[in-house]
Write a protein that binds this DNA or RNA. Structure first.
Lengths: 191, 191
DNA sequence: TACCATAATGACACGATGTCAGTACCTTCA
DNA sequence: TGAAGGTACTGACATCGTGTCATTATGGTA
């Protein structure tokens, strides 16, 4: 299982085979099935380990602690950091999910949990008048979370990894603009 | 090849097998290799058909025709519409890409093309003073395009499809806010 | 030492892939 | 008409990864 993580840092998920994996251990291939149902079972286990870590790091904004825009930056920073450390695992999950009914379910529950949390934060701040009440909280939450997942996996899911600072800035800008900015008036074109 | 599209509307990509596919045709399994290198080759062919259509539909904003915010909505509408019609194909591409070096390349070139176009539109409008010059054009373009892809595939990649109007509104809001809105002042919390 | 549960293995059957040598078919031209 | 030659197609095969046996080691317990 450590061996799997090691593998994913070096190779793509598509090259991950049970035989190859167990070659790195003193055990034989069938021994694998002692511990996991199949490859997807392994990935599922990896997700539940690393996924928990990630949720911790996002507390500030999720729980509405302090000034929202700064708190949001803190939360995003934590999420980025988690991906810097465990990017390949998330990448493997997202790539393996479409191949397995069960894993797909698990992955979508994981993302759904984020949607739940972000949605309820948005609704809370709509009540406080910080966010426009005309935003469809659930859809926006889902969009922003999907964006995070896609971008983070693309940037940190394999070596060489992207620049954490730049990615954080980008995500933060999109989140803040989407949630907290006033709609602009119509724009004049220069045609 | 029509048969493949038909299949993808009904089943998941993971269940698509060459044998199954050719069962729908009067031909035998090996005949498949007459036309495509392998499954991924087929998917690649599907993408280049449908991808071209999609680029057409995004012209207004990409080419800076008319008032930007309205043009952007037109372009996004076209893209949404394409996905309503061909969603499962894009889904198959995105799911198959991680499994094949070549296809992954093709897919990332396809997305890169969008990034190029959006980036240069952003830069043009930065010169016109419509968009803040402090935005990193390339990164923002990439983020917004990634968002589109993820959301559209999730909403229209399989039956039952989502609500095109609602998805369009969501995307449009995020794009407009990200590109055209002024950053808000610091927010007071109600703690 | 005898016993049992658990861990681990070698050998197997299966399913999907991709290839190849061979056959059917169809056009062209004498 | 009928031989030649190219193309479309096929049956059979080798390969590879998977998942499951029946069986054997191993380590703790009385």
């Amino acid at each position: 299982m450590d061996s799997a993580v090691r593998f994913l840092w070096e190779h793509d998920f598509r090259d991950l085979t049970i035989g190859e994996l167990m070659g790195d251990t003193p055990l034989s291939r069938p021994a694998f099935y002692q511990y996991f149902k199949d490859l997807h079972g392994l990935i599922e286990a990896l997700l539940s380990e690393v996924g928990a870590v990630m949720h911790q790091t996002a507390h500030p904004w999720i729980n509405g602690e302090g000034e929202p825009i700064a708190a949001l930056r803190e939360s995003l920073k934590g999420v980025v950091q988690t991906c810097v450390h465990h990017g390949p695992v998330f990448r493997a999950v997202s790539e393996a999910a479409p191949l397995d009914e069960r894993l797909e379910q698990t992955w979508s529950e994981f993302m759904g949990l984020w949607d739940d949390q972000v949605e309820s934060r948005i609704k809370a701040q709509q009540r406080e008048g910080l966010i426009s009440k005309s935003l469809p909280a659930r859809r926006i939450a889902n969009a922003l979370n999907s964006l995070d997942a896609t971008l983070l996996i693309a940037e940190f899911g394999r070596r060489p990894q992207g620049d954490p600072k730049a990615v954080l800035d980008t995500l933060h800008h999109v989140w803040v603009a989407t949630l907290y900015s006033q709609p602009p008036r119509k724009l004049r074109t220069s045609n």
